[in-house]
Design a protein around this nucleic acid. Structure first.
Lengths: 198, 198
DNA sequence: GTCTATAATTCGATAGAC
DNA sequence: GTCTATCGAATTATAGAC
C-alpha cells in the first residue's frame, strides 16, 4: 500500500522503467475517479490528462478495474493511540487526523464516490476501514470484543462528515471551521470509542 | 412532492391517463437508481422492469434526467418538535424517524447514490435537507441563527449512518440492532441540536 | 398510445505498425 | 515503449409506422 506519491514504490515488485508515466496515469486517475466516479471517469479522459495514449493505460493496468485498484491503494497511517494520555484524547486525535487526510488526499474522495456505486469499490473501502480503523478501536476501546461495532459507529460519523463536507460539499458543512468541526465531533468519536454501553 | 405511492399526485397538474404506467416506471426507476446508481441504471433496464417499451419512458419524462427528477421527488415528513417534552427527546425522535424512513424507502438510497456522483443529484439532496431538516433545527435549537450549521452536523451523522448501514452495507453497521443505533446516536443528535457552543 | 427501427455517440479493449 | 486504427458493444435519443 502506497500513498499518493512515489510511484516507484507501488507494490513489492522491483522498480520498473518509466514509472514516471505510471505515476502520471495514477495521479490523473485519482483526480478523475474522485471528481466523476467510476463510470464517468473514462480511460480516454484519464489518458488525456496524463498526456499519454489511452492504450498505455491498458498496457500498464490491464483494464479499468486494475487501474482503479492501483489508484486507490492507500495507507491511512492512523496514529497510535496507546498510552493513557492519548487514549483520553483519542476522539480529538482521530478527528484531526481524518480532516488532515481528507483535505489533501483525493484518493479517499475517489474511494467514497466509487464505493457508493460500485460493489468492488465498496468492498475496498470496507477493507481499508477494517484493516486500519478496527485495530485502532481494538487498542483504545474498553473491551476489544466491542471493537467491531464501536469502529462502525465511528465510521458512520467520520464518513458522514466526509460525505457532507468533501463529496456533497453542502454549504453549511463546508462553512464550518476546522476547529469547530473538531470541537463538535471529537466528543462524539470519544464516546463511541470509550463510553460504557448505554 | 409526493412519496413513493400514488403516481396520480406527481406534481400539481391534473391527473393524466395511464398513470398506472407512469407509476410502474417510477417504481422501477427508483429500484434501479437505488441499486445501480445513475450511470448504470439504464432506461432500457428500467423499462424492462416496468414491462413497457423504453420509448415510453422518453415520452413521459423527456430524458433520463427528467425521469430521475420525478423518481426522487420525496417528502421526508419530519416530525414536529415543538413542545418542551419533544424538544428534550428530539435526538431520539429524529434518529428513530430516519431509521423508519431509510429502512423502507429506496428513494433515499437512490438519492444518496446518485448525489455522490451526479451534481444535479447532490443539489437535490441538499435541497431536501435544507427544506426539511433545517426548519426542524430552527424549531428546536437554542438560537435559530445557529440552525444551518447545527443541521449540517446532524446531517453528517445521519447521512453517515445511512451511508455505512444502507449503502455500503458494512457488516458491523448492518449488524447493530435498531435499538442500539438509537441508543448511541440519539445523544449525538441531541447534542448537535441543543448543546451550547463548546 | 404503443412499438420498431435506427441515428449518433461513446466506451473499453485489441491488433499491429513503427 | 509508443501510437494509429478500429472492433464490438452499449448507450441515449429520435422518427415514424400502426
Amino acid at each position: 500500500m502506497n500513498g499518493t506519491q512515489d510511484p516507484s514504490a507501488s507494490g513489492a515488485d522491483a522498480p520498473r522503467r518509466s514509472d514516471a508515466t505510471r505515476g502520471a496515469i495514477l495521479a490523473a486517475a485519482r483526480e478523475r475517479f474522485a471528481s466523476d466516479g467510476y463510470e464517468r471517469a473514462t480511460i480516454r479522459a484519464i489518458a488525456k490528462d496524463a498526456h499519454i495514449d489511452p492504450s498505455m493505460v491498458m498496457r500498464y493496468y490491464r483494464n479499468k478495474e486494475g487501474l482503479f485498484a492501483a489508484a486507490v491503494d492507500i495507507d491511512l497511517r492512523l496514529p497510535d493511540l496507546t498510552g493513557a494520555n492519548r487514549r483520553r484524547d483519542a476522539g480529538r486525535i482521530l478527528v484531526e487526523h481524518f480532516l488532515d487526510v481528507w483535505e489533501d488526499n483525493e484518493v479517499l474522495t475517489a474511494l467514497l464516490r466509487v464505493g457508493v456505486t460500485n460493489p468492488a469499490g465498496a468492498e475496498r473501502m470496507q477493507g481499508i476501514l477494517r484493516d486500519q480503523l478496527l485495530p485502532v478501536a481494538r487498542q483504545a476501546c474498553p473491551d476489544p470484543e466491542q471493537a467491531p461495532w464501536r469502529s462502525a459507529l465511528m465510521a458512520s460519523q467520520l464518513l458522514g462528515l466526509a460525505l457532507t463536507r468533501y463529496v456533497l460539499r453542502m454549504p453549511p458543512a463546508t462553512g464550518l471551521a476546522r476547529a469547530e468541526v473538531v470541537a463538535w465531533l471529537a466528543p462524539t468519536i470519544q464516546r463511541y470509542l470509550t463510553a460504557p454501553n448505554p
